[in-house]
Amino acid sequence: MIVRSRPVLVTLTALVLALSAGCGRFGGDDPPAVPQDAPPAATGADPATEPTEAAPAAASLDACALVTKADAEKLTGTPLEDAVPVRETCSYTGPVTGPTAQVEIYVGDGAKKMLDIDRELGHEFWPLPGVGDEAYAEDGAVFVQKGGQWVAVRLVLLNDPKESRKPLEAVAGTVASRM
């Protein structure tokens, strides 16, 4: 039998409230509005890091629009759950009943970092000529750069990765055409 004492509950409640207050917003309140004509300092923007016309912000690219559910299902060869977008990423997963399948799309600096890490790990890459400004493939992933923006598409299937090479390369071309 668990015995709860009032002082312990009060202490735990106070701790939770203190932690939630110290960690930022707790709940769904919107941040205060910033006037449209506010200077960059008021918006938190740094003019030195603002995107230029040559390199649009990653946020301007919708990862789920770059690879649609239909594209992802064609790539995996199986039905997938609806997209789960999170910031500059999008994921499609197979149903819990199987088979194992997942397509992940990353936009921006994270996509480039994935390519850099895989290179450091010694993964084998091959170029994809004519796709975007620069594109590479490896078993289970493609990386496309166009207009200064990077996109990575990762595929998780329980098959021989060589079977997915051509479909992944086709997705790279689709991504480049939508960037």
Rank of each mutant, 00 (worst) to 15 (best):
E138T: 15
V144A: 00
R154E: 12
L168M: 07
T13H: 03
K162T: 08
L80P: 00
G28N: 12
A152I: 03
A63S: 07
L61P: 00
V16Y: 09
G130A: 11
S91P: 01
P167G: 01
V153M: 05
A45Y: 13
T43N: 02
D37I: 08
A55Y: 13
T93A: 13
T97H: 08
D30Q: 15
G108W: 02
Q145V: 09
S177D: 10
K162I: 13
I2M: 10
A33Y: 14
D29F: 11
E88H: 12
D62T: 11
P47T: 04
D139F: 13
W126K: 14
A101Y: 02
A72H: 01
A135Q: 00
E169L: 05
A21C: 08
K166D: 11
G148K: 08
L19A: 15
E88I: 08
P99W: 05
E81M: 12
T43Q: 02
F26P: 00
P40E: 04
G27Q: 05
L158A: 14
G77F: 03
E53S: 13
M114Q: 13
P56M: 09
F26C: 07
A101C: 03
L66Y: 00
W126C: 04
P127G: 04
R4H: 14
K162W: 07
Q145R: 15
E138Y: 15
L66G: 00
L66W: 00
P31F: 07
R154Q: 12
T49V: 07
P35Y: 07
A141I: 00
L155E: 02
A65C: 09
F143G: 02
F143S: 03
S91K: 08
A141L: 01
D29E: 12
A55V: 12
A38I: 04
K166R: 12
Q149R: 11
G22R: 04
A21Q: 06
A63T: 06
A172K: 01
G122W: 01
T174E: 04
A176P: 01
V96P: 04
L128T: 00
L19T: 14
E73D: 06
L15V: 10
K166M: 08
F26G: 04
K162N: 05
E124Y: 05
D46M: 05
W126T: 08
A21M: 08
K74L: 12
V142Q: 00
S60F: 07
Q149V: 15
V171R: 01
A18D: 07
L155H: 07
Y106R: 15
A83Y: 05
S91G: 08
S20K: 07
G44T: 06
G27N: 06
A111T: 02
K113E: 14
L157E: 04
L158D: 15
K74P: 00
L66F: 02
G108I: 03
A111L: 02
G28H: 14
A70G: 03
K74M: 09
F125K: 01
L158P: 03
T11Q: 07
K69R: 12
T11K: 10
P39N: 09
M114A: 13
M179I: 09
E104I: 12
D37E: 09
